[in-house]
């Protein structure tokens, strides 16, 4: 998390480097904004997008392409069974495949609240529903994190939880990949970083039948995904800053990025991501390309973990325990966040 490192003086200011080397033009803009810029929208940069990552989806192609299922789905919902085009379809498909009697379930989502897993999962809903965490410049959250759009997003995430396998209450990347490998769920949310394991037959018996899609748009057509991955910064205490700058200059070259992507790296380079060669290289690269131009992240402030704790404390019981209404939950969260921002003098 850039905010904490920058606020503490651990990183070298890379604003000039970013401008001189046209990083804003060569990398997917959303990645530069969230990996590198701090404070939000300030035009100051502290890193170069390195390992791109975001939350995407895997699904069971064999379940989706089963003619009987396709027919039954169409009869029930009135449209074709295919990778979901929006969050409503995501919900419908999850409901359709949720068959506890057959030990098959609809969907696997993140619920672990030990750190940021559940927050990232909820963000996938929040951002695609057109909601926001708050204003990154003024730090106002009241009326934003508890807006109607945000409430609808939490309702949607809570509803998906109903279609998860039993005991889906502390789940992150391990469990969500297991949902596919153990034939538990039709669709599963996960970071792209964990998808290579799903196309490997040694680790996924369903490797041939596993497909991927980007986080679908919400009801208003907004489409975003929660960001993972890392930027690469120069440490301010380093005695080898000159060499580090040379490395970065080499690292951001198109050909380096291309080579890196070929070796399995998750590049943020625009040209590489847009190339047909990249998009066809793996079953999930196309979804990765679709996603990396539409990523958004959590708060990038030094006290982000306190904001995360509040989110976990409020949203987890709502999703997993079904406690309270989404409005009550998010009103309480808005109050918590407002108090935190006031404590750190960002809000008066």
């Amino acid at each position: 998390m850039a905010g904490r490192g920058v606020g503490s003086g651990h990183y070298v200011d890379l604003t000039k480097f970013v401008q001189d080397n046209k990083v804003l033009d060569t990398m997917a803009p959303a990645t530069v904004q969230f990996y590198s810029e701090y404070p939000g929208k300030s035009g100051k940069y502290w890193s170069i997008p390195a390992e791109g990552d975001a939350v995407g989806w895997s699904y069971r192609k064999d379940w989706f392409e089963d003619p009987k299922e396709m027919e039954a789905f169409k009869a029930k919902y009135g449209y074709d069974l295919a990778p979901p085009k929006d969050w409503k379809a995501l919900r419908d498909i999850a409901e359709f495949f949720h068959r506890p009697d057959e030990k098959r379930y609809g969907i696997a989502i993140y619920t672990d609240n030990s750190y940021d897993a559940m927050a990232m999962g909820f963000e996938n809903a929040l951002f695609s529903f057109g909601g926001e965490l708050g204003d990154p410049v003024t730090y106002q959250v009241e009326g934003i994190i508890n807006s109607d759009k945000a409430i609808a997003a939490l309702d949607a995430y809570k509803e998906l939880y109903k279609f998860t396998p039993p005991g889906w209450a502390k789940t992150f990347f391990v469990e969500n990949n297991q949902a596919i490998t153990e034939n538990l769920a039709a669709m599963s949310m996960n970071y792209f970083a964990f998808f290579p394991a799903l196309i490997n037959e040694a680790t996924n018996p369903n490797a041939k039948n596993t497909g991927f899609f980007a986080n679908p748009p919400g009801p208003g057509g907004d489409q975003f995904a929660a960001l993972g991955g890392q930027g690469i910064s120069i440490v301010s205490y380093s005695e080898n800053q000159e060499e580090a700058f040379k490395f970065l200059q080499w690292f951001i070259k198109d050909e380096t990025q291309k080579k890196w992507a070929e070796l399995g790296g998750y590049t943020c380079n625009k040209a590489v991501l847009e190339s047909a060669e990249f998009q066809n290289a793996t079953p999930y690269n196309k979804a990765f390309y679709d996603t990396m131009f539409k990523v958004k992240d959590f708060w990038a402030v030094p006290e982000y973990a306190e904001l995360l704790t509040a989110l976990n404390q409020r949203v987890y019981p709502a999703v997993v325990g079904g406690e309270g209404t989404s409005k009550e939950t998010l009103d309480a969260l808005a109050a918590d966040w407002t108090a935190t921002f006031k404590k750190y003098g960002r809000l008066k």
Partner: peptide, 12 residues
């Protein structure tokens, strides 16, 4: 059956 030991907030 599918008794939820850890997912049930009261049982966990």
């Amino acid at each position: 059956g599918t008794f939820e030991w850890l997912a049930n907030p009261k049982m966990a």
